[in-house]
Structure formats: C-alpha cells, structure tokens
C-alpha cells in the first residue's frame, strides 16, 4: 500500500480549443493508490484536464493538445497508442450519472460483453464482483433485471462506478461524481472512494472544498487554465503557499 510510485506524469501539457488556450503548461504527477483532488473555480480547466487523462477530449472537434501524459511510463498521446485500450485501463465517472437505459445487470455487463465475454456465468460473476466493489450489491441484488434508470440518483452513480470497475481499470477519473446528489448519497460515494483507493489510483474533480479535504490525499488547485499549486491535501487547506490558493480554499472567491 505504501508505495509512492508515480502512476501518471503530466509534462508541459497545453490544450487549445481552436485558438483559445484552455490549459497552459500543466506539470503534475499523480501517485498510485492515492486520491488526487482537482479543485478550482468553474471554467478553470480542471474537468478539461481530467478528460485529457483518458483522451475523451479527442471527441471534441478542434481540440489541440501538446505535451505528454505518461501513464506507467508510456505517453498516451503517442501515435501508436490505442485509445480504446487506454480507456479500458482508465475508467471515468461523469458528473451526471448516465446509466444506459438497460437493466442493472446489462449496465454492468456492458463492457465485458463488448470485450467478447458472453458466458452467462462468467458475466454474472463479474457483475456481482463489480457491484460489491461499488457497495451496491446488497441494495440491488434482487432487482438486477430492473432498469438502471429506476434506482435513486445515488444508486445510479454507484451503478456507473460498478460499470467502470467491470472493465478492471486501474485508474478511475471522477468528474464531480457527487455534485448532483443529496448529502447521504454523497457520503456513500465518498466512503466508496476511500475504499477503492486501496486498489485504484483515483483522480477526482470537485467544486466542493470539504469533499476534497475529506477524500483526497493530494490536492491540485487550478485557476484560469493553469495549475497554481499542488501538495498534500492537509497542507493545501491549512498552509497554502500561494495567495490565490489561500483565497480560494478559504472561500474568498469561487
């Protein structure tokens, strides 16, 4: 558990929407089996940065990315990299829960099926394992045939997490996963994040400072497309070195 290896290393990353720079020279290392929180006011580029890590920005026309993102030492923007394989290793949870309009079972079984697993027993094992890891199994085990859209918002979000886990990624990217949830569901997601970090490297975008303080080991503060400061979460919230970080975490703007 106590390894501090650098899972993701980002060097000189720039991102442009057309001619407009959205990210400017980002340098950041993300450690294995830690939760790294990305914070900053809206429009600061934290979500854009997150989407660079599994190349979801590729889908937006007119986006230009410079610099390198090394995952386990391999630059994922190298031309020989297979984006589909990359996304299997780097899972993503979206701000708004987005289960497929299929049954709970089929939601979780989606990725294994896409990867050619059709054996019912094998699928069931994967589904159960993933739902258990996402702390959802006990709540839905009797209703696996129910639509993924019929369960509560918090359950839907955990279903989406289970769906991602079924691909066996080792990095999880979470884009404000609890922003649309009530406090009880939010705390369940936060507990889950705490449990998951034993096996996964987690990067979470949040606009909720308390949440960042609660769940993360490291915190990176983004402002206007730049990475202002990064450090241990405790330090960031008690003794930030940068004035703007201090202003932000103390709630003076946001």
């Amino acid at each position: 558990m106590e390894n501090n290896s650098e899972k993701i290393i980002v060097n000189n990353l720039d991102l442009y929407y057309g001619k407009k720079a959205a990210l400017d020279n980002i340098n950041l290392s993300i450690l294995s089996n830690k939760v790294t929180a990305l914070i900053g006011p809206s429009g600061c580029g934290k979500s854009t940065f997150l989407r660079c890590l599994n190349r979801m920005n590729d889908l937006i026309p007119g986006v230009l990315i410079k610099g390198t993102v090394l995952i386990n030492g391999r630059d994922i923007y190298e031309s020989s990299v297979d984006v589909v394989s990359l996304r299997k290793k780097v899972g993503m949870i979206f701000q708004k829960s987005n289960p497929f309009p299929k049954s709970i079972f089929e939601n979780v079984a989606y990725a294994p099926r896409v990867n050619g697993i059709n054996n019912k027993k094998e699928l069931f094992e994967i589904v159960e394992k993933s739902l258990r890891k996402a702390a959802l199994w006990e709540e839905v085990k009797d209703n696996l045939d129910k639509s993924g859209l019929s369960i509560s918002g918090g359950q839907q979000q955990r279903l989406c997490i289970a769906r991602s886990l079924a691909v066996e990624p080792d990095i999880l990217l979470m884009d404000e996963p609890a922003s649309a949830l009530d406090p009880i569901s939010t705390s369940k997601i936060e507990d889950l994040i705490f449990e998951l970090k034993a096996n996964y490297t987690i990067v979470i975008v949040t606009h909720n400072m308390q949440q960042a303080a609660r769940v993360s080991d490291k915190t990176a503060f983004f402002y206007m497309g730049e990475l202002i400061e990064v450090g241990d979460t405790k330090m960031m919230f008690t003794q930030p070195t940068n004035k703007r970080t201090e202003d932000y975490v103390s709630g003076r703007f946001g």
Binding site: S32, I71, N72, R74, V81, S85
Partner: peptide
Amino acid sequence: MTTEKNIYSLDRKFRP
C-alpha cells in the same frame, strides 16, 4: 514498480 509497465498493452490493436 517498473514491472507494472508491461501489464499495459496500449499498442494499437487491429480492429477490422
């Protein structure tokens, strides 16, 4: 941890 590098096969796959 260097061994972990090899777990990945991010190389472009043939997807006809």
